[in-house]
Each structure stands twice: as C-alpha cells, then as structure tokens.
C-alpha cells in the first residue's frame, strides 16, 4: 500500500536520525499512526538503525577520510589544542636571550622550592578521556535497562557532558554491577569532573571484577587518579603493575614512575634547602 501523505512520509530518515523539530516529530508520529506504509517501513528498518548505533565505533572508523576529518577535529582533546597553541608561539619565543630565559627559569625554580614545601604530584596525573569503542564492551547479557542507560550515558560521555554521563552510568552500574565497561567509563567521567576519590573507587571496583579486557586500563587510570590526589605510593603501585603487564600502557607507566621518582628527589632537595633557610 502506498504512503498516504508522501510530503510528510519523506521525513522518515530524518525521524530515524532524530533530526526533526518537536513540531515536525509530532506531525510525523501522527502520520505514522495513520499510514501503514510508513509505520511498516520504519519498523522494518529499526534494527538497521539501532544496529548502526550499537556498532558506531566500527562504522565511524570506516567512513571516508574526508568525512572522518570532521570528527577528528571535534574529538581532539583540549590538551592537544594547548600544545598546538604553544607550538604556534615558538617563533616569537626563540629570539629571547638564552641567558635571560635560563635566569628566569632558575629564579622560578628557586621561588617554587621555597614557596611550596610539599611536593604536588597532581600535575603529573593524566586524566585524558579514553576513546569509547562500543563494539568491545556491550555485553550480550545486559538487561534492556542497563544497556540503554549505558548507551545514553555514553552519548553524554562522548559529548563531554560528564555530570550527565556519571548520573546515567551510576544507574547502569546499579542495575548491572558486573559490567566492567560501565565502571571504567564512570571512573573516567569522574576524573574529568575532578572527583578523584570517586574515580579511584570506581576503578578499584572494576579491578575486582578481573575483566582481562579492562584490567590494564583500570590500573592505569587508577594510578592517575591516585596521583591527582597526591597518593604517590598508591599511584606507584598501580603504575608498577601496569609496567609488569607489558601491554598498551606499559611505556607510559614507566615514564610516569620516572617522573614520580624525580619529583621525590626534587622534594628531598627542596627539604634540604628549607632546612638551610631555617638554620640561617
């Protein structure tokens, strides 16, 4: 049977992609209730659209390079943008006399030594956002509720709306406490919000699940969460564990361990200077 109103009927793909205004959406849904053809078309195609949403990571990865550029620009982390900004300032910085730069650095270093008696490890922490790869993590045993909450939480996560992501991922976790992916992205969202204790709790719970796919990531991110809250002993322990696994984050963990050790040495030096200052 043909569509009863092709003018409205042609909005079907916009409806499927949620691109209609509220008014258009309502008009189209009214049309669906009256038009058997469009309802059937929508219903039959529904698994295709939800299949695309479910496996978005793979699909996005295979789009044409020209199309992907738009996404990469959007995804680029803030830290990279700052790095680019600094790089663009390099030509202006180069002509400055080296001696002056050196003297300034030393002056700042000494000032820092005397101003801050306690070492601060937080700047060493990496709290970058882990890319979301849906294909790896959707568990087939998830209930409809927790899977939906997870999927909606991840939509917010990808948009950088971490508070909303935390809210939904917490609910998903309550419904399915054994899903490592939920705990992992919940922890990363907490990290983005600067709630390092909560992040660390989520990662520790995740570690207890012993999910081989996530174990290293839990360790790495928990190490950074601990570092951010100045728990260098805990952080070192996590990074050592990552290093021994010799997998994806091993090299970065090794660098991190080196940085912490260096910061500890600097701290000792600073302590020495402080004592001298107290004595004289």
């Amino acid at each position: 049977m043909p569509c009863t109103n092709p003018e409205i009927g042609k909005l079907i793909f916009m409806y499927e992609l949620k691109l209609l205004s509220d008014e258009e959406r309502e008009r189209f849904e009214d049309h669906l209730l009256a038009c058997e053809h469009c309802f059937d078309e929508l219903w039959r195609f529904s698994p295709v659209i939800s299949g695309m949403e479910e496996h978005r990571a793979q699909i996005l990865a295979t789009l044409e390079p020209a199309v992907q550029e738009d996404f990469q620009i959007r995804r680029r982390p803030v830290i990279e943008k700052i790095r680019d900004l600094i790089a663009s300032l390099q030509p202006f910085l180069r002509p400055a006399p080296i001696g002056f730069a050196l003297a300034t650095t030393v002056a700042i270093f000494i000032a820092l030594l005397f101003l801050f008696p306690r070492v601060n490890y937080a700047p060493l922490a990496e709290v970058t956002r882990e890319p979301y790869t849906l294909f790896q993590i959707m568990g087939t045993s998830d209930s409809l509720d927790s899977a939906q909450l997870f999927s909606q939480g991840m939509s917010y996560y990808r948009n950088g709306e971490d508070s909303a992501a935390v809210r939904l991922l917490q609910q998903a976790h309550r419904l399915n406490p054994t899903n490592a992916a939920t705990l992992f992205y919940l922890g990363v969202s907490y990290l983005q919000l600067g709630q390092f204790d909560s992040a660390s709790t989520a990662f520790s719970k995740g570690l207890a699940l012993k999910d081989s796919l996530y174990e290293e990531r839990f360790l790495w991110y928990d190490g950074n969460a601990r570092l951010a809250k100045n728990d260098e002993a805990g952080a070192l322990q996590r990074f050592e564990a990552v290093k021994t696994r010799a997998a994806k984050y091993a090299a970065r963990a090794e660098t991190k361990i080196r940085q912490i050790r260096q910061a500890q040495k600097d701290h000792a030096l600073r302590y020495f200077f402080q004592k001298i200052r107290e004595e004289f």
């Binding site: 699909i59 789009l63 020209a66 199309v67």
Partner: peptide, 22 residues
Amino acid sequence: MTGAIKKLSETCQKILGFFLEA
C-alpha cells in the same frame, strides 16, 4: 553495513556520522 554506508554520498555519510557521534 559499513560497505553499504561507504557507497553513500559524502553529505549523507557526514550526517550519518554526526548522528552516530550523538
């Protein structure tokens, strides 16, 4: 599925991509 999507026009691929990016 991705094979089929890659055969669509660039605009359509972009819109689909943006939709999938939520």
